[in-house]
Design a protein around this nucleic acid. Structure first.
Lengths: 348, 348
DNA sequence: TTGTAAGCGTTATCAT
DNA sequence: ATGATAACGCTTACAA
């Protein structure tokens, strides 16, 4: 492969001039630049990123590290995000370095990768409420952006997140407007920040109308069909079962629907079902009947902003300014309806 | 972060000696080596891989490029492979660079990545029968290993594959031994090499007992539940429907089972179902009732060998010697049984 | 406007 | 057994 020096030699120039010409420095002669660019193209010259990194401290490599078991379970649609990210990063001449760890010590792979000194920054996913990675990276001044938010209030790092609280509040209000007084929450794993946010928003919305939710109707587990199935079966066996289910994912809603069917029940007649929909194309495995009412916010929408934020951070943008929260759309379909079951659960 | 020179200065040695000490060169004085190693540890020294790459021509980065839409659809369990690969690669001090492309020109991202000149090699997945990537990489002398095989017979590159032909033959023979004469094949997308191999092995096994299969019972589509559902519904509507289904994945088998249920049928009484099982943990979404008879070969088993092969290739091993084919286990469970429906399809 | 030279952190080839 | 020196390909003061 051709090097800077090859071009310089061929043109009787110095490598420095060629470098300047190719990097758009203003002082180079227009004719010289043209000659250089022409030859570079002709020789199919590509700058050696390794050499560039050695001198510039940049590699164009962005790391993404996952907990192998948990994340795959927590987020079956993870592939979607990686795909979108790698595409947008490529537009900024960056690449995604992927690593999964079975280790319980989530920081270990970060230490390893940072030690190798070849990454420009990290993209964090699925933060827990008090995520150790954030403090660790911040202490060291390592650039990162977060898909999600670890906590409430003003945060000092860049993130892209959906308005989970808003979505849950809207969904809960919808159900209550339909007359529901007993709503079960089938949430994601408790350690994730989004699950906490959703839980407290739910309880707050209920409390705002004087309604309480016994803890046995507040379940936390992975975003899987099975989770919804089990939670709903248990809830329906209660002497005073919920008349509505608020699910953290459409997969969970699938499970809830299956439980209803198993018990000879039907949505929305016997119970309403509403879910959050990440809109992952290949996840329409089970066609919902009836069509599912959802709060919808395509996961894919997060990719470009996250990649752009990474790029901005690396170019010195103020991290605290790179924060995006998007609203989920409430899409009314057939799985929600009015109820006559208006006895609230007792306030304990 | 500490550099070689820092250590050298602190010890009054030259960087060269420190480098030799750390890299286990035999000529260094044992005492010197001990001092160097001690200080290196103490200063938390890590070699700068960028600098190493610049001089050695190696980056430790291995590329993996996917067709975003197709692969995700074709192989919902892809995440499993990436996870395992990144873990084993890490043991060889290598990292996985991931890229997904929406482009129809699959070679484009390879060109881009090769041009950047930071990858040591590639891991290819899901080869098509006459995969253009293989020729392209071979021409350029770029190291790669393949998960799967593009074609039959002796191949000149390293690969890890399961014995698809053997698995299909065994499954088909099992069904025929149980009396089945009309077997439908619900295969993966026709362009993939494995699908071709499975198809021809199936037809050959059937033909060996004088049986033919009308093409309407040989379907090709993505490895999804929906695929099995639709294929089975169509097949069951036939005047002379199959008495058994040979499925390319358990997801497809799920769909076949659902179709049977919808039609008021039951396996194995009304039709036998057998599938190939990649044994991806998080894919046990639908619990199979009855338990599914499968040919089983955990996808995860491919990861370590592929990473090891990559390592070997980069260290000059003969590519043609790095070829592994593993046999799938036939696991007899409850979804297969004898049939009385022994009228074969007519030989056309 | 262009060239010279130093340097990024490491390894490899000579010497010593 | 160790050191000096060059080299990997590029960028960037500083000189010219």
């Amino acid at each position: 492969l051709a090097t800077l020096k090859d071009i310089a030699d061929a043109l009787g120039l110095s490598p420095a001039t060629v470098s300047r010409a190719l990097n758009g420095f203003p002082e180079v002669n227009a004719r010289t630049r043209a000659r250089v660019e022409a030859l570079a193209r002709q020789m199919n010259y590509r700058p050696n990123q390794i050499a560039q990194k050695l001198v510039s401290g940049r590699s164009g490599m962005i790391g993404m590290i996952l907990r192998s078991a948990q994340d795959a379970a927590a987020d079956p649609s993870f592939f979607e995000v990686m795909t979108g990210l790698s595409q947008r990063l490529a537009e900024h001449e960056m690449d995604l370095v992927f690593h999964a760890t079975p280790s319980s010590d989530l920081l270990a792979p970060y230490r390893r990768m940072v030690a190798k000194n070849i990454l420009d920054g990290f993209i964090l996913n699925a933060p827990t409420f008090d995520d150790p990675r954030i403090g660790w990276l911040t202490e060291r001044g390592l650039p990162f952006v977060v898909h999600g938010r670890a906590g409430d209030g003003p945060l000092p790092y860049p993130y892209y997140d959906i308005d989970n609280a808003g979505a849950v509040t809207e969904a809960t209000n919808l159900l209550m407007d339909l007359g529901h007084r007993r709503i079960a929450l089938v949430n994601g794993p408790a350690e994730y920040a989004y699950a906490r946010t959703r839980l407290s928003a739910f309880l707050k919305a209920m409390a705002a109308r004087g309604l309480a939710v016994p803890s046995r109707f507040l379940t936390h587990d992975r975003l899987a069909e099975e989770t919804g199935y089990r939670a709903a079966l248990a809830a329906l066996a209660d002497p005073l079962p919920p008349s509505a289910f608020l699910c953290a994912s459409t997969l969970i809603a699938d499970g809830v629907m299956r439980a209803l069917t198993d018990r000879g029940l039907q949505a929305p007649r016997d119970a309403s079902v509403i879910a959050h929909d990440d809109a992952v194309p290949q996840m329409r495995s089970v066609s919902h009947a009836p069509a599912l009412t959802v709060t919808r916010s395509p996961l894919r929408d997060a990719c470009a902003p996250l990649a752009d934020m990474m790029h901005a951070v690396l170019n010195g943008a103020d991290p605290a300014r790179l924060q995006t929260v998007v609203t989920a759309d409430l899409i009314l379909r057939a799985s929600t309806g009015p109820t006559l079951e208006q006895t609230p659960w007792p306030l304990t």
